[in-house]
Design a protein around this nucleic acid. Structure first.
Lengths: 201, 201, 201, 201
DNA sequence: AATGAATGAGTCTTCATTCAT
DNA sequence: TATGAATGAAGACTCATTCAT
């Protein structure tokens, strides 16, 4: 059933989505403060009041983007946990696969990632959540006898988060490296370090 | 005969320093945009024009803080390089000592660090510079036969920067860990990884 | 069906024009610096941001007024040249008619004239342009045999400009004299001087 | 009797004069508003409070310069009148000599002239005074039978002022012409006009 | 669903001027 | 005579947001 009488092929939902998409790009590129509502609507070719039909405020729109990022990321991680746990056989592959999932998501959603992981105030919270998840996993593994128990798992977990965020920002979002390659190198680094004599033997 | 009891604020250099100190704290806590000149002067108990006696603009003051951070950091790193290089004997200690210097500086200048490493636009540049320095060192060591040459040193360098920044932000600046402990753990992690059972065997 | 009774100020073009008109009067009466944006908007009964909807800056608005003056004046002079040139018969009338056009324009646009001819920095440029135009005309006439060639035409041209500006300011803009009368007297003065014995004979 | 213990060879009167001189140049070059007290004292190598030891305000200093100009100019004109009046023999020379005096004064005091004749609000008044003086002279001459009585002497007087101001600004202050030459040409122009048939006969 | 027009509440910055010494 | 330090009072400009249609 065709809708009729719509103007210029746009309807409400489309306008909303358009604003959201443009805003994401702008926020990602210029940050929250530097992004003006007037810039967003100019690019979307609507007027400022239209913006306020769809979003309560600039802040609310931004929050929506952050929430979207956070939710997707949390889902991703939960799914990862479900999928693993079965086969403890290859621990390294399990970890690698988790990282790969995350990096793939990041690479596919660069603006959202920039916003939720680097721009939002909330980014600190989000990363803290990830770090805690990692820490729990580590503790778990250690209790099962894997890994060197000399480490402070909090530190290791935060370190991994640090590596993830830095490489995401400098390599992944710039498409200088593929998610898979990235995941491989990080796993290698964290499991064996750079003075990996073992391999030489 | 030293003058005493001079009325507070009647010394220009003091006023300048006071403003600088307050501004650093404000910028560190609230970011550049959220920090208002009016807030700074209110805390310093001077009027707005006084601010402009000592600083050309809010931006100029901020830049002065960033420059100060950058300069000190660069000096630190240069000095580190001079001091090392002599004794290749204990590579791990050399690295550890570099990290310790950096973390000590960060811990002693938390606001400046927050600004120059996390708030300034320039932070990206600064970290890039550090990463490049690390990469060169790594390449150097590898050419001397140290380390596993299977790694992309760019990635490792960026990873180390990521770890440094994350742990600085979440542990060091919050005084949850001592510089020395932090340096130790990082070196351990990067050299041998977490699965370093084999060495124990 | 024409809309009537639209609420005052609800038309952008009107608001713009209103601001422009008020600004012209203010600038003319008080000069550039003494005229505050806040004065202008107060008189226009709009708020300051409204001012910036229509003009990029106080300076831009001022420049718009100056440009308008300059453009109209240039057009006027070009037209004058086209219209003359045909009938060399009555030179004095040709000159008079040019002056009359200018004075009429000035009298009809007193604020714009005050601004573009007396207040703007650019006024010097504008007058220089006029002086050059006059000089070229004079040289032309002299080459055709009119006029006493003992004069430095640059001086004469500048003199004429000086007379125009002074009488405009002190007589014309105060409506103390009519354009036509003014043009007549100036032509008389410049052609024959005040010791015009010849005519008495 | 030599004064002793004076610092750096400067005393109050000297400082005052220095400020006055520098201020004159600054006002002349940049106008009243654009000239900052801070600029003046910077050039004079004194501090702002020193400025206020010698002058009540920026305005007062400016006024002092204007007054100086006005007074000197008035004196000049009065003297001119005394000197003439005696010898009606050569009217043209009398006028020329008055103009010469004025132009010489202007040329010798370019900054003061720029200020008092072109920058001060009061300039209008000053010129009006001159115009009135000229008018009276003209009326006088006419009553004695000189000059064509067809002219409105107010207009002629204002015209002469217009010529004086314009040529002063564009030629004299730029040293593009000598006072004498200028006076000659103006007298010639005003007495006989440019269509000086008489000479041709 | 959308807009033309307008605004409240800031925010940085400037400058003549004065205080205490 | 002179100054180091500070300020009162203002002015240009910005931006998220809303009103009336």
């Amino acid at each position: 059933m065709a809708r009729r009488g719509r103007k210029k092929g746009s309807n409400g939902e489309e306008s909303r989505l358009l604003l959201l998409t443009i805003a994401a790009e702008e926020f990602a590129k210029k940050g929250y403060q530097q992004t003006k509502v007037s810039d967003i609507v100019k690019q979307a070719k609507v007027t400022q009041p239209t913006f306020y039909i769809y979003f309560q405020s600039k802040e609310a729109l931004f929050q929506e983007l952050v929430d979207s990022f956070r939710t997707q990321l949390v889902n991703l991680v939960s799914k990862s946990r479900l999928e693993s746990g079965l086969d403890d056989a290859d621990l390294s592959n399990t970890i690698k696969s988790s990282l790969l999932n995350i990096f793939t998501f990041f690479a596919e959603n660069p603006y959202l990632t920039k916003i939720g992981f680097f721009i939002a105030q909330e980014a600190g919270d989000i990363k803290k959540g990830i770090a805690e998840g990692i820490k729990e996993n580590l503790d778990d593994e250690i209790s099962k006898g894997y890994f060197n128990s000399n480490f402070d798992t909090k530190i290791v977990a935060e370190s991994l988060v640090g590596v993830i965020e830095r490489l995401t920002l400098t390599k992944l979002l710039d498409r200088l490296i593929q998610p898979e390659n990235l995941a491989n190198q990080i796993v290698q680094l964290f499991l064996y370090g750079i003075e990996n004599k073992k391999r030489i033997e």
